[in-house]
Design a binder for these strands. Structure first.
Lengths: 335, 335
DNA sequence: AATCAATATGTAAGCGTTTACATTTAGATC
DNA sequence: GATCTAAATGTAAACGCTTACATATTGATT
């Protein structure tokens, strides 16, 4: 029923090896026969079977990418980076999300290995130590993005979550804020959430502001939980004048919370986010936030991984990309 | 180097067929031998080779999904739907985006076919007639989401873009608006954009409002272009009192444009979006928009496709899901 | 103990490629 | 035209699994 390389060979009157060559190394076959074969393929609507092909070669020219969730637009941009860089070099992408679940992540790793991907890009530290152990036991390359993973001997392309978070709080302080709350991500979900909290604390230490437990609320990343958390903070007897949200999604929720309570963002209360999503610039007021190199991180990650796959580069790429605090109008200067 | 089914068989002292059976049909092998084999697999860190497996069976248990872009969050939600429904039934997903380019789409289809996917979910009508012809020439099932494709004999799971758009304009009219602009998507990019424009016109006809060319601007979907287009509309000598944006992303831009020009959304000018993204509820003011069944469309699409793949259902699923106009505060009542 | 039907396992031929190696062909050199 | 080298093509053995079919084992039934 389906036509194979063998059929094409028969029709064109050549051997299967020759057909395989016109597919893989066209310039190793004489032009006249190449045309004959090409014609036979076209006329019979031959479709290459990549499964069989990869079984013969060692490689599938496929990368696996693991992200927390596709639902947060920020992972869409890094994913697009990985995808486009991979495509540019002739690789395709297997995409999977963990939804912050360690077991799901492990299954994903296993699936990828079974599907014989040539390499895996992780977004952040693996949630599951088994995932890592599994990877190490195999011989395929992998790397980390989104978060440095110091204790693991693998390359990473990342940015400094802790430092970026500290800069946020530094800025609040420079605007006269001393009582600063934080809507953090859940530390058990991601190391990034934890690092950003560390950065928050670093700044407090530097500016000699006592750490207050009640000012920090861990929440999953969603608009609704940002709203809840910020509502709680703003309703305290002694509410913060500024709130650092661990990502823009949470910040949007926090802005809504402030409005609900009649506090004007950028006038009565300061809010800063993290990620610089496309929408942040058109919030009312425009949201001050940390721009992270999502797309770049993706492309560099894919490129570095492919280099490893193809044995081109040393295995110790350790890039730390720059972040920028984008100043907009969501932070008032306190008299 | 890598350990295969043959190694496992040798170690466990059984035949390869038996090993294959413990992998695929565990209950067809006696418990004692199953344990022996399992042990041999575990101790030697055997990893199943899905490539070789699929070559033997007919199926890869993999679906291909084609979306316009991963960058618009609304496709993230339908993608997540497809993904989760597929996973639930033991299928994995190959994800690719066309970026609204016909050639890219065709390449994607070709890639999927080469990778032997069991079926393909399209998001909207194929941009490229060759894609479609190609699909038809193969024997693998496919279906459409996001948009009915009447002239193609394939199932679809969709919603009525035209009707939903008409309801938007109906609502504007019911609030006293007669001069209504539209920031539309580009008709050449998607049929959905065109359909929504048709719905806009349907309403104008019904309410006997003359169609004015200058009130409709086609733009690619981005915040920036929404802002541009709305700016242009609002700066007209006789500006619209209401603007229908073909998606929420454009609407966010339009809201910013209104603010830039000192027009209060929901008071001086009405804006309605389309998609009901998570953020729309926390815009200032909260954005009135059309909620579409993105997640449901995804899950139903995947389920229907898998049914087809597995030969379970008639091939003529034609679901039209419901949309809802979510009334919030971005539309003023005109005196 | 013989018979029979399940049940469990083994044998070996695919699945559609790739590729090392062998063979043929072509073109250049004398 | 004989010789040699390089280029073009062919042969056949992998790659790691599945599965139809054959064979062996088991246990119930008589």
């Amino acid at each position: 029923m389906t036509i194979t390389i063998t059929d094409v060979a028969r029709i064109a009157g050549v051997s299967v090896a020759t057909v395989s060559r016109v597919i893989n190394y066209p310039d190793r076959v004489k032009e006249s026969t190449r045309c004959k074969v090409q014609k036979a393929m076209d006329e019979n609507h031959y479709v290459y079977n990549a499964l069989a092909g990869s079984l013969g070669k060692s490689s599938t020219r496929t990368l696996g990418l693991i992200i927390p969730t596709i639902t947060n637009p920020i992972f869409a941009v890094s994913t697009q980076g990985v995808q486009s860089a991979a495509a540019r070099r002739g690789y395709s992408l297997l995409l999977g999300s963990t939804e912050y679940d360690a077991e799901t992540e492990y299954n994903l790793v296993q699936l990828y290995l079974e599907k014989q991907v040539d390499g895996i890009v992780f977004s952040g530290r693996p949630l599951n130590d088994r995932s890592l152990a599994y990877m190490k036991s195999r011989r395929i390359p992998y790397l980390f993005t989104w978060e440095a993973v110091d204790d693991i001997d693998a390359p990473h392309i990342t940015f400094d979550n802790r430092r970026a978070a500290k800069q946020v709080v530094d800025y609040f302080v420079s605007m006269g804020h001393r009582r600063i709350g934080m809507v953090a991500g859940r530390f058990k979900d991601t190391g990034r959430a934890y690092r950003r909290w560390m950065g928050y604390k670093d700044a407090l230490v530097q500016w000699e502001i006592p750490y207050d437990d009640k000012l920090v609320i861990q929440k999953p990343y969603s608009v609704a939980s940002g709203r809840e958390a910020a509502t709680r903070l703003l309703k305290m007897e002694e509410p913060p004048t500024a709130i650092f949200c661990a990502n823009d999604i949470l910040a949007y929720g926090a802005m809504a919370a402030a409005r609900d309570l009649g506090r004007r963002v950028g006038v009565d209360v300061g809010i800063i986010g993290f990620d610089d999503l496309e929408m942040s610039a058109v919030m009312d007021p425009p949201l001050t936030t940390v721009r992270i190199p999502g797309h770049e991180m993706g492309t560099m990650g894919a490129d570095a991984l492919i280099d490893m796959v193809e044995g081109k580069k040393p295995e110790t790429v350790q890039y730390v990309l720059e972040t920028d605090l984008i100043l907009r109008e969501s932070v008032p200067r306190l008299n």
